[in-house]
Design a protein around this nucleic acid. Structure first.
Lengths: 238, 238
DNA sequence: ATCTGAGATTGATAATTCTCAATGTGCCAA
DNA sequence: TTGGCACATTGAGAATTATCAATCTCAGAT
């Protein structure tokens, strides 16, 4: 993992102020004055597929916002298998457990080329004390993390495997960067780890959806066109 | 639902200060001075099995801490079925979504006679502004809600139905008020809604565990003695 | 061009879980 | 006492999913 650039304090504050997705993330409500409070460097950099953003054994000194791309939060099981606990997408914040001075809870692994903004916990704490606007944002991010987890549970762990896969594809469509009607197609093992089914079952279902044209390959092998109404049908009835 | 007592501001602050489980909940770090900031009444009351603490259609004006007992957070599905998204136990906080001025996300239903402390959101917001100590607590509560949800996912929705039930019984042992070696035994439908299995499957497994003495009835029909090592065995191997 | 390795797909069979249906059990009220 | 009711339990067969194993595909590496 290489940082693209270590910014000086001034530079990073400048960057944040001009960040085009700022309204999605933590610093949306900060004023010029707030930005002047930033002392430590906020780094931004890209990670490639398979790289690790953070894991359980790293010192929990940063939180991360996702500017673009997709990250999986992985919980390893004793037997070497793993479970994907959540996905982070544009605007999501990862590693917030660092704000409580507790170790990171998961390994965060990049699924798609991902652009990250890495913020020192110390900086958050300073702003938190000195800017009520950040505090509010932070609270609502936490809220989002909880409700995301709940939605996950309610939709992605009930019903037949077919339903779950359909729901997952719909979930991944929502902000697939390629535009609507398309969905990120994860590896079959990841789909399994996400939905609590085996790799083979995931593969069979994806293959069947392909055969029936419910999903169709695109030029990018990681992205598929989806037949949204059909998937919604499957997700609800069946 | 009846409130046991509508306390005056002074009385409720007094109560909080003397609350024996205070160190578990939001107000653990508050000072005498902080308590003097409390203006609105903080009510405490008991609810019986089946009563609703809050639901999606109530105005989100309060958050709730659990002083004792157990509450399920229920997400209703369109077809009339339901999914239990999380359990709240002693020290847990429910309805925190109210702090973001968003509707409650679930229906919270009492599973065991439960003692509740109901705090107006307005009061939290005032203390939040005026006492950094509360803010810190609140943050860490949020953190706990997220990590609980993740643990839930990682343990209670993987593996065979037998494993899941074993994990659930172990989970419910942790702070069963009757002491160690005992576990709250939920209704079979609730077990199903919790673990993503059918009521019948839940019943079969519980019945089997009873037959083999892995769990044993006690004088209280809602509580069973559990054979912890055996359950751990089942949860891990199998 | 061939080799190679990591995923993906598919098949056959076993195991698990669901579904539908019947029965059992204990508690409460008339 | 006697129904009645809400749960819990059990059975049998169908459907789904896991398991084990064999190919297949395809992008890189040699």
């Amino acid at each position: 993992m290489k940082l693209a650039l270590i910014n000086s304090a001034w530079e990073s504050a400048e960057k944040c102020r001009n960040c085009e997705i700022r309204n999605l993330v933590l610093f949306a409500d900060l004023t010029q004055e707030d930005f002047n409070l930033i002392h430590l460097p906020i780094d931004d950099y890209d990670l490639e597929v398979g790289e690790t953003l953070y894991n359980e054994s790293m010192p929990p000194k940063f939180i991360f916002t996702i500017r673009s791309g997709m990250v999986k939060l992985v919980h390893w099981l004793p037997n070497g298998n793993y479970r994907i606990v959540r996905l982070l997408r544009q605007g999501d914040v990862g590693g917030m457990e660092a704000l409580n001075a507790t170790p990171y809870l998961h390994q965060a692994i990049v699924l798609q080329k991902t652009s990250i903004c890495r913020i020192p916990v110390e900086e958050i704490e300073r702003l938190n004390r000195e800017s009520p606007r950040l505090h509010k944002r932070l609270t609502s991010r936490w809220q989002k993390a909880v409700s995301d987890a709940d939605i996950w549970l309610a939709h992605l762990t009930v019903g037949s495997a077919k339903k779950r896969v359909a729901n997952l594809l719909l979930y991944l469509e929502k902000n697939c960067e390629q535009g609507l009607g398309k969905s990120l197609l994860l590896g079959r093992e990841d789909i399994g780890a996400l939905l609590g089914i085996t790799t083979e079952t995931a593969s069979r279902i994806i293959a069947e959806y392909k055969r029936f044209g419910v999903i169709r390959q695109t030029s990018d092998p990681l992205v598929v066109d989806i037949d949204k109404p059909e998937l919604q049908q499957i997700a609800e009835n069946d």
